Structures are given as structure tokens and as C-alpha cells.
Amino acid sequence: MIAAGLVLLALGLADLARQAVHRHRWVALAAVLIVVLALGVVVDAVPAAAMALAVTTGWVWLMPVGAPARAGVWPAVAVFGLATASVAWIAPRSEPGLIGPVWRMPVPGGELTPDHAVLVIGAAVFLLESANVVVRAALGTHALPARTGGARAPRSAEPRHPPPVSDGFVIPPRPPLPGAPARDEPPEPEGGSADDAVPLPERPSLKGGRLIGPLERILVFALTLAGAYALLAAALAAKGIVRFPEISRDDAGDRAEYFLVGSLVSWVLALASAFLVWWGFGLAR
């Protein structure tokens, strides 16, 4: 069980480091290595930590960031196969190392051991960013089609001051006051031309897809472990309802396929992680 938790935790931390750090990525990965080895020493599982780091090295090479995956989704299949074998063949430990004498964490069903805690945390961390890597690998051959409606005009042909939009409706420009001269461009600031004015910063856009995916997987993971299957079905149905207008406008069906492949891979990863945790908890009873 501890080996499965350390493997998932190492993969999740490595992918979070690769996503957050761009210039000194290998330094961040070295920090992940130190953290995992230190945790292995604390819980008396140094061989399992070394195996987790070896698996992480292969994962980083096979699943690069910003490039196509070298082996598709098969590294994820191999990782969950290894984690399942670790849970099935390695019995729960009664002596969890240095942290054992001071570890006390009661839960409603009994007491949460350090091995259980590492497995739950590792599965949750894996679902944050590593699952995004797997979903992108699964969609590597399913390119999202471009939106129809013509090619985008060159930047020079775009209006410098587009009309504001509110709730999807374009607000028409305010007519000039009586007697005021008509202007196509805003008035020049005092002491210089309009080109010398400092441009206003663009409003940052919310990257909803990067947030929705991890939140959805954590929700599926938690609801599955809690046995709230009715709420789980409602949450999955709600996502389909929210995406239905966009999918229904797709005549070719490419967007529907893109949505289904990504969603199914994401749900399978969350359910597989919940199954590992559920099986690990069952073996300890």
C-alpha cells in the first residue's frame, strides 16, 4: 500500500512542479526527489520511495510537457497496474517507521494509519495535474476543431476600440452630443499623441478548463469514497447539461467526441484512484 501511495504522490508532485516552474524545471524536480526520499525515510519505506522515483523518471520522459506523449496513455495504465499490484501483494504494515510512535489520527471508521494517509494524499495529488497529462495524451490524436465563422482579421484591421459586450449583447456606441464634432478615434491626451498614451492592461481570462478538470476529478474521487453515488450521478449529469449547448452546435460531431473522450478518461482516472484507496482500506481491516 505504501508503495502505491508513494508512486502516485511522486508522479503528482513532479507534474505539479513541471506545470508551475518553467525556467529551472530540473531544480524543482530535484526538490520533489528530496521530498519523496525524506518521506520514505520517515515512514520507513526507502525501497518503495526509490521505486517511486524510478517510475517518476520514466513518466517524465514518456509524458513530456508541451510535446506529444511518447507512448500515449499506456504509461498511466502501467502506473495503475503497478499500484494495484502493490496494494494486492504488499500487506499493510503495523510499524510505520519513525512517525509511528507519534502518529494518531482517528477517523469515523477507526484510525487512519500513515500508509493510508500517504495513499489518499498521493491519489489526490495525482488527480490534480498528472491526470491532466493523461487526458492530453488521450486527446493527442483528437485535435479540437477550429470554430467556424471565417478567418480572423489581421490585427491591423481590427478596431482599436471594440464596442463593449455585456451578457453576450454588443452595446452600441453612445451618440455624440449635439454640436460636438464626430470622432472616429478618442481625443489625443494633452502633451502627446494617442500613440504615446500608456495602453490599459488586458483583463486576465480565467482558465476554466484547467480548474474544472481537477475539481471534477477530486469531486468524483471524494463522492465515490463516501458512497454518495446519487450525488456523483447528479454531478456528472450536470456537466453534460452545461456542455450540451456547445455540443449541439457541432454539426460534424468532432466537439462531442472531444468532450466524451476527455471526460471519460478523466472519470476513469478518478474512479481508479478511488478503487485503489477503497481496496487498501479494506485490506487493513
Rank of each mutant, 00 (worst) to 15 (best):
L11H: 07
S156H: 11
A10T: 09
D250H: 07
L225H: 02
G5F: 03
A67Y: 10
P159N: 02
L8T: 07
A54L: 15
D250K: 04
D167Q: 13
S205Q: 10
V170A: 11
F244W: 15
A233W: 07
P68C: 09
R285S: 10
A30W: 11
R174Y: 07
F126T: 00
A138Y: 00
A153S: 11
V268N: 04
P96F: 09
W59Q: 09
A182P: 03
G282H: 11
T57V: 15
L39Q: 07
P189F: 06
H22Q: 14
A272S: 15
G58K: 07
G240P: 01
D44N: 11
G72R: 03
D167N: 14
V87Q: 01
F221V: 02
R183V: 08
I90M: 14
A49Y: 01
G149M: 04
R210K: 10
W26F: 14
H161Y: 12
E216F: 08
V170Q: 09
P163F: 12
R285F: 07
L9N: 05
L127T: 04
G12V: 06
L13S: 08
G100M: 02
S193A: 11
P47Q: 04
A252H: 12
S266D: 10
R93C: 01
I212N: 05
V87T: 03
E158D: 06
W278V: 06
E129L: 09
I171R: 12
I34N: 10
G122I: 00
M63E: 10
P201E: 08
A20F: 13
K239R: 15
P145A: 00
P47S: 05
S130E: 09
S266E: 07
V277C: 08
A234V: 13
R160D: 11
F80T: 06
F221H: 01
V265C: 04
F80K: 06
A235Y: 05
G109L: 13
P187F: 06
A20E: 15
S156F: 09
E216M: 08
A123R: 00
A226G: 07
P186C: 05
H22K: 15
G208M: 09
E188S: 14
A222M: 04
A10E: 06
E257A: 13
A180T: 09
R243F: 13
E185S: 09
M1L: 11
V261I: 15
P106D: 06
A52V: 04
V165G: 09
L271E: 02
R147A: 15
R183E: 13
P164S: 08
L53T: 03
I90V: 15
P189R: 10
A10H: 05
A153L: 14
E129R: 12
F221N: 00
A226Y: 00
A28D: 11
P176H: 11
V60T: 14
A157Y: 05
T141E: 14
P181F: 02
V73Y: 00
G109H: 12
V261S: 06
H116F: 11
A88K: 07
A180Q: 11
F281G: 12
